[in-house]
Design a protein around this nucleic acid. Structure first.
Lengths: 197, 197
DNA sequence: CAGCTGACAGATATTGAAATCTGTCAGCAC
DNA sequence: GTGCTGACAGATTTCAATATCTGTCAGCTG
């Protein structure tokens, strides 16, 4: 790593940390590695992040936020019907997770470990995602195509019912044949459950 | 362990293995330990189980079968409505898992590890459970209270939609406050999804 | 003085030698 | 003969010594 002479910023540290995690994996990535990659002493890294855990959590947050952004657009697209948005949102979430897990399993495993450590960042991320779902469910309830006395609870139920297709602990199942059909069947069941009686 | 002079049977070995697993955990339980507990040489254990993996799989199978049996009664109770049976079945499965995980977390973790190793036994167990669900769904479809063109697929969807409440990888969530409400919301969504349109 | 360095203490990880385990099998005992 | 033993080879695990890492801070540098 060329020790560039730019100012050392939190941003540059995060980029370098991602690279170190990609190369070494979560167990072997050290703060010293990150400092070495940046051509600085490891003491300097601690000037920007109080602990190694904080650094890892910041990296995790960036990674999770990237997923949320792509989905926010679908949730907010008021031109489409709530059911179409819901199906698209769930399919996009599943596709994104599956693609990441399939393309670079080691990196995905790395981030899964990080996510397991970063309770706070993950909780925020999940709240963000169910918030997006709630927006769709609420739109459906208001236009009368969904029945949902409590849109927040219904959004949570939809999210949990599709856990198998977005929770990293099920990543191995995403490569199995027939997973697409399983996904379609669950989405069908969930959408039917939301529809106005 | 008293070296009883009874004949060495597969059954006795399995009981001893469960005890060793309970005491030592999955990582440290050895075939030598099992033999020592029985007061025999470890060569004798290999007379009944070809490999350590086979022994562990047999123990896992017994454990899984115990869960299935309790639920089979609910699924087969033709005197009750399909919806009542379905709700009861799902609640019983969740309650059983939660109780086991909460009562003795280490033992539960032990069996979760074993289950992760024993692909074959687990696949059979899952097929058994979805078979029970299919029986309930089919009864509902035949009596007209459920709409399910493909009862097997619908049963699979119900099972996967409730993954969060029976898959061991979610065990930590089962202790959190509000999990009961989450469960109720998902079951409600699923039951509504099955009901005749 | 603002930002960085590098040495330090205590905690954690690595390493390689020694101990234990898995799976086999020739032979003992009943 | 049937069922068990115990020694064995190769693989795996343990353990303690060694090395590295985390987090701090006094002091250097520009």
């Amino acid at each position: 790593m060329a020790p560039t002479s730019e100012t050392l910023t939190a941003e540059r540290i995060l980029v370098a940390t991602e690279e170190v995690l990609r190369r070494h994996g979560p167990a072997k990535a050290t703060v010293v590695d990150v400092a070495r990659a940046l051509g600085v002493s490891h003491g300097s890294v601690y000037r920007h992040f109080r602990t190694k855990a904080a650094l890892r959590e910041a990296v995790t947050k960036r990674w999770l936020d990237r997923t949320s952004e792509a989905l926010a657009g679908i949730a907010a697209d008021e031109d489409r019907t709530p059911e179409a948005r819901l199906r698209d949102w769930l399919a996009s979430l599943f596709a994104a997770k599956r693609r990441k897990a399939g393309l670079d399993p080691e990196l995905f495993a790395t981030y899964s470990v990080l996510a397991g450590e970063s309770g706070e960042a993950v909780a925020e991320h999940l709240a963000d995602l169910t918030g997006q779902l709630e927006r769709i469910v609420r739109a459906g309830a208001e236009s009368g195509v969904f029945t949902a006395p409590d849109p927040a609870a219904a959004a949570g139920a939809v999210f949990h019912a599709t856990d198998r297709f977005h929770d990293p602990c099920h990543a191995r199942a995403w490569e199995q044949p027939g997973i697409e059909a399983e996904f379609e069947a669950v989405v069908e069941l969930v959408v039917r459950g939301l529809r106005a009686a």
